[in-house]
Nucleic acid binder design. Structure first.
Length: 347
DNA sequence: AAGTCGGGGAC
DNA sequence: GTCCCAGACTT
C-alpha cells in the first residue's frame, strides 16, 4: 500500500481558503495580528459562541488594552470583566499569564509555539491559534470544528470524545494544510459554525461538498462519532440573603470549585442569630438550567444591633445594590440581586 | 484517561 | 429536556 503524501489533500485546504476570502465573518479580532488581542480572543471564546462573548471581548480589550495593563490590574477587576461568561479560571489564568509575560518575556509576547504554550491557561489549541495567526506558525488549531469537519470530509469514525482525538485529528488536519495556516485555522472555524454545523449542516452551500466523503456517500448524519458522557448529579445549593436597609452580606468563594473566586451570599448563618431575624422567606430559585437548583432564604434583619452581630462574628462583607455591580457574582445570584433590587426600590 | 468547569442558544 | 460551543486543567 502506497503511503499517502501530504500534498494529496492540500487542495482541500486551498479550496477552503478561497471560500474564506469571500465568506469570512466580519469580527473585531479579524482586523488585527496583535498577539495580545488574539490571545485574549482565543481565551474568551473557548467553549463559547461568538455572539455570547463579543461584548465581553470588546469591553475586556477596552479596559485592558495590553499586557502591561492587564498584568497590573487587580484580580477581582479582571473577574468583574469576566462576569457572566463562565469558566472563571480563564480569567484568573489570563491575569497570571499577563504577569508571566512581564516577568519571563520582558512584556513582549513570545513568538514561539512552545513558549506560548507555557502561559497559564494556554493549551495546544490556543498556542496554535496565536502562533499561526500572529507569527505564521504552521500548526493547525484543532478544536471541535476540526473534529467535526475532518471526520465528515474523511468519513472517519474516530470517536471525538476519545482523549486521543486531538492528536488524531491533528494528523488529518496536516493532510489538508495549505500555506496560509492562520487564515486556514480561522476558515475552519467559520465553516464549522456557519456551514458544517453539528445539526442540519448546509451541505448544499459547502465549498467542500464534492470533497466530502460523508456527503458524497449520504452518511453525514453518522459523523462525527461521539460517545455519550454520563451527566453528573444535580447540584443543590442553599444561601441566605441577609439584608437590612438595602445592604446585604456576601463573601468570596475559593478557587477550588465552581464559580472560582466569585462572590456569593452566606451559605449558612449561625443558630444563635436565627431568633433575632425579622422574617425569613424561602425563595425557590429554580436555576436548574444545568442540573443546578438554588434555594435562597431571604432574611431581613430588623435591629441595628443584630445586624452588627452578623458583621462582627463572621468574615462577611457588607455591600449594597449599587456597589454589588463592582463585584462578580454567579449568574443566578446576579439575577436574584437584580430582581430584589427592583422590588426594594418599588416598595 | 476521565472529570470538571458556566452560560446561552439551537432544536 | 439534550446537545454543543475558537479547551484547559486536575487527578
Amino acid at each position: 500500500m502506497e503511503k499517502t503524501e501530504k500534498s494529496d489533500f492540500k487542495y482541500i485546504g486551498n479550496k477552503l481558503l478561497t471560500w474564506y476570502e469571500k465568506n469570512a465573518r466580519d469580527l473585531p479580532f479579524r482586523q488585527t495580528k496583535d498577539p495580545y488581542k488574539i490571545w485574549i480572543c482565543e481565551i474568551v471564546f473557548q467553549q463559547t459562541r461568538i455572539n455570547q462573548g463579543l461584548n465581553h471581548y470588546t469591553n475586556f480589550i477596552e479596559r485592558f488594552p495590553d499586557v502591561k495593563t492587564l498584568a497590573e490590574a487587580d484580580e477581582n477587576e479582571v473577574l468583574l470583566y469576566w462576569k457572566g461568561l463562565g469558566y472563571y479560571s480563564r480569567a484568573i489564568n489570563v491575569h497570571k499569564a499577563a504577569q508571566q509575560i512581564i516577568k519571563d518575556y520582558h512584556g513582549i509576547f513570545p513568538r514561539e509555539y512552545e513558549e506560548i504554550l507555557k502561559l497559564k491557561g494556554v493549551g495546544k489549541y490556543t498556542a496554535a491559534a496565536v502562533s499561526s495567526i500572529c507569527f505564521n506558525g504552521r500548526i493547525p488549531a484543532v478544536d471541535g470544528n476540526f473534529y467535526r469537519v475532518l471526520s465528515r470530509i474523511f468519513a472517519d469514525g474516530f470517536d471525538i470524545s476519545n482523549s486521543k482525538a486531538f492528536n488524531y485529528f491533528s494528523e488529518l488536519a496536516y493532510l489538508i494544510l495549505p500555506d496560509n495556516v492562520g487564515d486556514f485555522n480561522q476558515a475552519m472555524m467559520d465553516l464549522g459554525s456557519e456551514i458544517c454545523k453539528p445539526k442540519n449542516p448546509l451541505c448544499g452551500e459547502c465549498p467542500l461538498n464534492q470533497d466530502c466523503i460523508a456527503f458524497l456517500t449520504h452518511t453525514i448524519s453518522q459523523f462525527p462519532v461521539k460517545t455519550k458522557k454520563i451527566k453528573s448529579e444535580g447540584l443543590k445549593l442553599k444561601y441566605y440573603f441577609v439584608h437590612r436597609n438595602g445592604e446585604f452580606l456576601v463573601q468570596q468563594r475559593k478557587d477550588d470549585f465552581i464559580w472560582k473566586k466569585l462572590f456569593e451570599f452566606p451559605p449558612e448563618i449561625s443558630e444563635a442569630l436565627v431568633p433575632f431575624i425579622k422574617s425569613v422567606k424561602t425563595v425557590n430559585h429554580k436555576l436548574t438550567h444545568k442540573n443546578l437548583s438554588i434555594e435562597i432564604y431571604n432574611v431581613e434583619v430588623d435591629s441595628e444591633e443584630v445586624w452588627k452581630h452578623f458583621i462582627d462574628e463572621n468574615d462577611y462583607i457588607i455591600t449594597d445594590y449599587e456597589s454589588s455591580n463592582q463585584k462578580s457574582f454567579p449568574k443566578p445570584l446576579e439575577n436574584y440581586i437584580g430582581n430584589y433590587q427592583t422590588a426594594y426600590r418599588i416598595l
